[in-house]
Amino acid sequence: MAEQIINPSTTHSTKVAGQGYDYTIGPTQTLPNTSTATTSGTGFVVPTTGIYGQSLISKEKQVSLSAYAFLFQSIVSYHRDSSKNVQEIERKLNSSGYTIGMRLTEILNFRDSVPNKTGLTNMDSVAGTITNMKRRNLKILETLQYIHLTVWQYLFSRPSNDLVKSSERDNEYMIIDNEPTISQFIQHTSVQCESFTCGIIEGFLDMAGFPCHVTSHFVEETGFSNRTVYLIQFDKAVVERENLRQ
């Protein structure tokens, strides 16, 4: 893989013809002297380096589990040092996972729309191969099932163990994982390190249009000491909308 520094989108590393979008000014027109070019060779230079040159279809990459565990551990300590109480640590872990979840909604669904992925891992642009986008999930249950299966598969190489709807309240659902992967080396503490995964779920659901609040809890069972329940509480408005739009 090309060793490129990831440039923030807000800086201009290479000067190319044409300017970027400036939100304080507004839209710019395609300039007359560059837009009438009919052949692709003339006109302005289209950069193919940078993030736009990468493929969106991932190769199956493996990362060392211990490296990951150390990284996660330092994240937890970092947050622990900068927080005053347990709640705050959990919130910060949540927010760390939140941005991941926001991206997952988009990228995983997009990848599902691309047919025949195996041959495309080197292609610059795969959008041309899509005939129909996969249908957007509109129902709570569909989305949760997607998380339970596909997202978990993507993150932890296996689906989660259970998806349950609470019988008491209609806006509460639970996903259960018997052996949560990312915190498997962390001893039981008062801090819920799985808040990180909660953040991922929360970001995923928020972005997909189901605002919610996710927390994790230890519920031990025989043989599974780290068994965690992720409690998803949707906004009441989400449930109302679901009923309204039958």
């Binding site: 926001m102 970001g203 972005m207």
Partner: peptide, 17 residues
């Protein structure tokens, strides 16, 4: 004050969307 996630998406008009 409590620490808040500044990335959290806020949607006010869900009911009338």
């Amino acid at each position: 004050h409590e620490w808040r996630n500044e990335n959290k998406l806020i949607q006010n008009n869900l009911r009338s969307e």
